[in-house]
Amino acid sequence: MSTTDWPLWEVFVRSRRGLSHTHAGSLHAPDAELALRNARDLYTRRGEGVSIWVVPATAITASSPDEKDPFFEPAADKPYRHPTFYEIPDGVKHL
């Protein structure tokens, strides 16, 4: 079995009451359809009402750990950048 025949896929699952897809893990499959089926067996136990996304691992571009500073450390002394001064009405959920 060569890895080109059975490439790696990343699996994202949204649970029945979940709001967003969460990365669940990865698996090998020959194509997208079988990746979906394998994901169903491996990560959802076939629970109803879930949504699965599979993405070939090669399609994902990750941020580099070396660029961590400019990427993830915004100037903390500019509080107006952070939307923390608003009052949120009770009716608004999942903000």
Binding site: M1, W6, L27, H28, A29, L34, R37, N38, D41, L42, R46
Partner: peptide, 12 residues
């Protein structure tokens, strides 16, 4: 089974 994923499927 030929691959791990298929092993799980057959067992299921």
């Amino acid at each position: 089974a030929p691959v791990l994923e298929e092993e799980v499927a057959l067992a299921n």
